[in-house]
Design a protein around this nucleic acid. Structure first.
Lengths: 212, 212
DNA sequence: TTTATAAATTAACCTTATCTTAATCTTTGA
DNA sequence: TCAAAGATTAAGATAAGGTTAATTTATAAA
């Protein structure tokens, strides 16, 4: 069934990783970023619910659909309460599974297509354009990514380390010096158009854009 | 069925609004903020899917579970693709519906709790702001960390060594003198706004903030 | 491929908030 | 009363963050 599902999803254009046992599943979930994880409960080596618990403890937002032969209400309730986002009992229909995956993934995708906005800054995440007071400014990639992350997390202090984690590729080893320079350059551009300091420094903690 | 569900959920401690037709449903969804909306597709006056589309266009993040007599795969796929987060076909089990609601609502709740508070001191761990009697004060990193630790452990005596362990990086070798100075500075600021000593000294043991 | 251009990073230097230390003063309990 | 624990103050040390300019790296055009 595993390979049949994989073939089916690849045909539909998805990128798929598979695991034959619980330990591999848990390892893959830890080391990769997935839109959705389809998790069979009946796994060798490590129980599916245990895998789910590990996934959930590591990442509150990971989307997980449980696939299980157990179809009783109590099994479903247990699965959902352990942290699954959805539960399908076998036998299931491929099209329904796909629709449920789409439904779970939609929100993440949808977010990418929307515009974010705060304090007069409007970010179109689709075409990567940033508008401030009707003026469209071109931000280079890193500056764009930093500003987008700050706007997405407005109202929260974001540390340099957090920025580096999210904006840079995971393999780079970078000093926060670079962040300072980028922040400085972003501020310069914003100040010209906003007339006020949008990015605040919270000394010792990081940077923040206030929520209105 | 509507009133039976309502009674059931209220008994479980949920707060529930109900609507008997599509127009009312759409209106309620527009004018209120709900953790989850359970939406029957077969509604008088306005079709459920139409209501769903309106909800979704207004709020990308609203959680919606469809409840429907139509149980074919194509109906489910249509419902989920229109923007539902989940789909249950009748007849359904109340406990399963509740578990699915919990599953959808879980994530929102998880994010909400970012403030600690005791004795009129409110600490927002997200933006690192400390509010005392409506006044926001800026605490430097060490002072902030010490106060946060004391508030987190209010009602318990915290020794200087414990503070050093938790507030300072593990590699520093520090005398407790520094803690004393920080405590003194924190007290000075709090006293100005509280009018009372919030941090008590327990001679020989450490410091404590009383639990109310 | 080479060249021109833009972008990212590093380095150097500056300012200043914050931290620590030491000296001194105050409180507490035997 | 008097040690010991704790509090306070102020001064020097430290580290966080900002800015500018130079260097390196990536990207696009010829």
């Amino acid at each position: 069934m595993l390979s049949a599902l994989k073939r089916g999803f690849i045909k539909k254009g998805y990128t798929v990783d598979t695991a034959c046992d619980g330990i591999t599943a848990s390892y893959l979930a830890e080391t990769n970023v997935y839109d959705v994880i389809v998790l069979d409960l009946n796994l060798p080596k490590k129980d599916g619910l245990e895998v789910l618990e590990e996934i959930r403890s590591r990442n509150e937002n990971q989307k997980v659909i449980i696939l299980s032969a157990r179809s009783s209400v109590s099994d479903k309730v247990l699965g959902l309460d352990t942290g699954a986002n959805d539960y399908m009992s076998k036998p299931f229909d491929f099209l329904e599974l796909e629709a449920r995956i789409r439904s779970l993934a939609r929100r993440e995708y949808a977010q990418k297509d929307t515009t974010l906005s705060v304090q007069g800054i409007v970010i179109n995440t689709k075409n990567k354009k940033i508008t401030v007071n009707e003026t469209v400014i071109n931000f280079p990639p890193k500056e764009y990514a930093i500003l987008e992350y700050l706007v997405k997390n407005c109202g929260k202090v974001v540390s340099s380390e957090e920025l580096i984690d999210h904006v840079w590729k995971s393999d780079v080893d970078l000093f926060s010096v670079s962040v300072k320079v980028h922040i400085s350059n972003i501020r310069k551009k914003l100040l010209k158009l906003c007339g006020k300091e949008v990015i605040k420094t919270v000394r010792g903690f990081g940077y923040m854009i206030e929520k209105e």
